[in-house]
Nucleic acid binder design. Structure first.
Length: 293
DNA sequence: CCGCGGGCCTGAGAGC
DNA sequence: TGCTCTCAGGCCCGCG
């Protein structure tokens, strides 16, 4: 469940439990997710205190009291859940509220408060790493990340510049984390619908000229943060995984205008179009051919 | 550098 | 019921 709004929802859920928390012990189920855990991962975390829980694009970053940062990515299927410690946690147990260990619980953070934070990830496309906080920006994963979609940098002028010379589709350009970092397949589709821009358009055609972005680019610069904010307010989108750390579902999937709505009527006022699914770069794109130009 | 295609994993759902 | 197939919210790598 991992685009920016879902990651932000997770961050907001974890923050009250994690910030200021002392990590007693970390348990791993196996040595790797998408990549191996760094050496001595569990040992290096034991005894540390979390000073802040931040987000960069789709990454969660827990700053620790020794100057290292725990970097976490949810991949396609990662989720966190918080288990508060009634009684004593059985040693060696990845506890589940019903006493069962989830089949894909890979990491358990045992906090001094008695709470446990469990990371579950069936497909194991997720990632955890430990890096010096002052070198985060230079790390391979972060070095090439573009701007935050909710930051001040996202202006029509900036977007227009980013699209300049890009021969790829606007859909692919918005998925490119080197430009705007944090959008994924769902929110790109939704933002394009909101801005009435066809996903098939060449990105360069939206660049405009001499710092004069096109009207479509101005609409996109509004639609992107607007969709993200609404999604965060709704607790993200839940398709098959839980978005929230307490196990409750996000609600934004009920507000989708195009994603997953193949064959359904376009909800734009006055539009009689029907939502269509196409494949771009091997991934589904949903859009309304009638009103997205 | 850019853009594309494939690969990495497991599970859910559809269709037979 | 059970099998096979397709698809899934992301990212990395290697190729031309």
């Amino acid at each position: 469940m991992p685009e920016l709004p879902e990651v932000e929802t997770v961050r907001l859920g974890l923050r009250p439990v994690m910030e200021g928390a002392h990590i007693d012990r970390v348990e791993l189920q196996r040595g790797d997710l998408r990549r191996p855990f760094p050496g001595d991962f569990a040992r290096r975390l034991a005894g540390r205190t979390v000073t802040a829980l931040r987000r960069r694009a789709k990454y969660l970053v827990a700053a620790l009291d020794d100057g290292t940062c725990l970097v976490m990515h949810l991949g396609m299927s990662g989720s966190f859940r918080i288990e508060t410690g009634e009684g004593t946690a059985a040693p060696g147990a990845f506890h589940h509220p019903k006493g069962r260990k989830g089949p894909h619980d890979h990491v358990a953070f045992h906090l001094r408060s008695g709470a446990r934070i469990i990371y579950n990830d069936p497909r194991r496309f997720g990632l955890m790493d430990l890096l010096p906080c002052d070198e985060l920006g230079e790390s391979p994963a972060f070095r090439s990340l573009g701007i935050e979609p909710l930051g001040r940098e996202l202006t029509p002028g900036w977007l227009g510049g980013a699209f300049r010379g890009r021969r790829t589709s606007i859909k692919a350009a918005l998925l490119d984390q080197r430009l705007v970092a944090g959008l994924g397949n769902i929110y790109v589709c939704e933002a394009l619908w909101e801005a009435r821009v066809s996903p098939l358009r060449e990105a360069a055609s939206l660049a405009g000229r001499e710092g004069r972005p096109t009207a479509a680019t101005r609409r996109l610069a509004e639609a992107i943060p607007a969709v993200m904010k609404r999604a965060i307010a709704a607790g993200g989108s839940s398709l098959r995984n839980h978005a929230r750390t307490d196990g409750s579902l996000g609600d934004f999937q009920h507000q989708f205008k195009v994603y997953g709505r193949t064959g359904a009527p376009c909800e734009r006022r006055g539009c009689r179009g029907v939502i269509r699914r196409i494949v771009q770069g091997g991934r589904s794109t949903y859009y309304c051919p009638a009103c997205q130009k």
